[in-house]
Design a protein around this nucleic acid. Structure first.
Lengths: 167, 167
DNA sequence: TTAGATGCAAATGGTTTGCATGCGT
DNA sequence: ACGCATGCAAACCATTTGCATCTAA
C-alpha cells in the first residue's frame, strides 16, 4: 500500500561522463597492469587522466576491495596524490557505469564500491562496518515468488549481518 | 582486506528513550485497537502522548506498511495532526527499539520503517522505490558459508530489485 | 583548439541534536 | 511538581552541483 512519488535519487545524471562507449574488449587480456588500466579506461570511453589512473591503480592493484569515497581519498593522499572528493565521486560513478565497479548500499549512510563486479554476496561485520565477500552463495537455491506482473527481477541482493559471537 | 575504522553512525544513543522496560505482554490480546496501542506503548515504557498515539494509529491501522519519516509526517498532517520531523524520527526509533517496527535501509539515502516485524524479505520496485513484502521466501534454503570465527550470523537480508519488464 | 575533466566551495537532503517549553503521571 | 516529550532551528554528514580553470587528444 505504501508508495513513494519521487523517482528520486537513484536517477543519477552521471554528471560529466563522456559518451560511455559500449565497452568492447573488457575481457581476457591480463598483462601489464598499467596497460590494463589504460585499456579499461579507454574501453569505458574515459580519458586516462592523472586522477583516474591513480584511482584505478589504488582500486585494482590490491585485489578485491570494498571502499568508500572517503577511504579512497585517504589512500590517495597517503600515496601523495591529492584528488578532490568531488572527483573521487565522479570517477567512482563513472567506473561503476562502465562496469568496472559495483555500488553497494549497506546501512543507509555509507556507499561502498566493490572492485569485484562478479555476482556475489556479502557478510557485513556490524561492529566495524567491514564487508567480506561471500564466495559462492547458492542464491539460486532461493525459491522466489513471481514478481508482480510487468516487472522482472533485476538483481537479488543478499547481505548477511554478522555480530560478535556471544561466547 | 578493506576495513572501516568508525564504529560510526549505527550506534544511535536513542536520544531520549525512557528505560525501555523488557517488553512484557506484547502477545495475543487483539481487542480494541485503541487499547492495544496504549498497551504497546506501555509495554515499551513509552508514555502515550498525543503524538505517539497518532503515529501508532497511522502506522498500525492500515495493515503492513513501509514508511519513511517524511511520508509519515505527510500522513499525520493529512490527518490534521502536526508533528515535528524530529519527533517523528524519535518515535520511529523508539518504536523500533521496542520491537514494534523494523528498520530497513535500502538504497543509501532513505530509511524505511516496516510495520511487519516478522522475518520476511522485500521486493524493491526500482522505478518508484516502493517496497513489497515477499511472504515466504525460503531463505533457509540458502546454504551460507561459515561466518568468520568469533562471529555469528545476526540476520540475513534479501532484497530483490525489480525493474520494468522490457516487453 | 576544444570537449571533457578537475577542484573548490556552496548547495542538498535526510537525519540528528541543543535547548527551552510542554505535558503525562 | 518531576521528568520524560516535543518542537524549532541549527548542526551534521555523505554526496552532488555550479562554475571557472585545466588538460588530453
Amino acid at each position: 500500500m505504501s508508495s513513494l512519488e519521487k523517482p528520486s535519487s537513484k536517477a543519477r545524471p552521471s554528471r560529466r561522463a563522456a559518451r560511455p562507449r559500449p565497452l568492447a574488449s573488457l575481457g581476457s587480456l591480463v598483462g601489464c597492469p598499467f596497460h590494463d588500466l589504460r585499456m579499461k579506461l579507454f574501453d569505458a570511453g574515459l580519458r586516462p587522466t592523472r586522477q583516474r589512473l591513480a584511482l584505478g591503480w589504488l582500486l585494482y592493484a590490491k585485489g578485491d576491495r570494498h571502499l568508500t569515497a572517503e577511504k579512497l581519498q585517504e589512500e590517495a593522499q597517503a600515496s601523495r596524490v591529492s584528488i578532490s572528493l568531488a572527483t573521487i565521486y565522479n570517477s567512482l560513478h563513472q567506473f561503476t557505469e562502465a562496469g568496472l565497479l559495483r555500488e553497494i548500499a549497506i546501512d543507509g549512510t555509507r556507499t561502498y564500491f566493490d572492485t569485484n563486479v562478479s555476482h556475489h554476496d556479502h557478510f557485513l561485520v556490524e561492529e566495524t562496518n567491514m564487508l567480506i565477500d561471500i564466495p559462492q552463495v547458492a542464491v539460486d537455491l532461493l525459491h522466489l515468488p513471481e514478481p508482480p506482473s510487468g516487472k522482472r527481477i533485476a538483481e537479488v541482493e543478499v547481505i548477511v549481518r554478522l555480530r560478535d559471537d556471544a561466547v
